[in-house]
């Protein structure tokens, strides 16, 4: 084992783009579903009236904000799941000293 190896991510780690995709994409789908259900029953104009009536917000803005709020929540949840599912080897490697004791 060389010093270079211990700084490399574990072979189990996925590239950033795949991790991002695995977190952002399923949360995107479910945010879409949640928005559809919410806005089928609630008009953004009514939500506007009971929340921040002094702000200038169109319906389109209401839909967009609603969707993005759902997405941030679902993405946060996916992110939490990813954190908890990370392999112990990856976690341990991060805490390792630069010099590998096996050397």
């Amino acid at each position: 084992m060389t010093a270079t190896d211990s700084r490399q991510p574990s072979s189990r780690a996925r590239p950033v783009i795949q991790r991002l995709a695995a977190i952002l994409w399923p949360s995107f789908i479910w945010a879409g579903v949640a928005s559809m259900v919410l806005f089928a029953f609630a008009d953004p104009v009514d939500l506007h009236a009971i929340s921040f009536p002094d702000w200038q917000l169109s319906r389109t803005a209401g839909y967009s904000i609603g969707f993005l709020m759902f997405w941030s929540v679902t993405a946060a949840s996916s992110f939490g799941t990813w954190l908890l599912l990370r392999d112990r080897k990856v976690l341990n490697q991060q805490h390792q000293q630069p010099t590998d004791p096996s050397n």
Partner: peptide, 16 residues
């Protein structure tokens, strides 16, 4: 040479 080698091994798994 060795760092090249290890990078290749890692890439095999981590970068498509």
């Amino acid at each position: 040479h060795s760092s090249d080698d290890s990078r290749q091994v890692v890439e095999l798994y981590t970068r498509s």
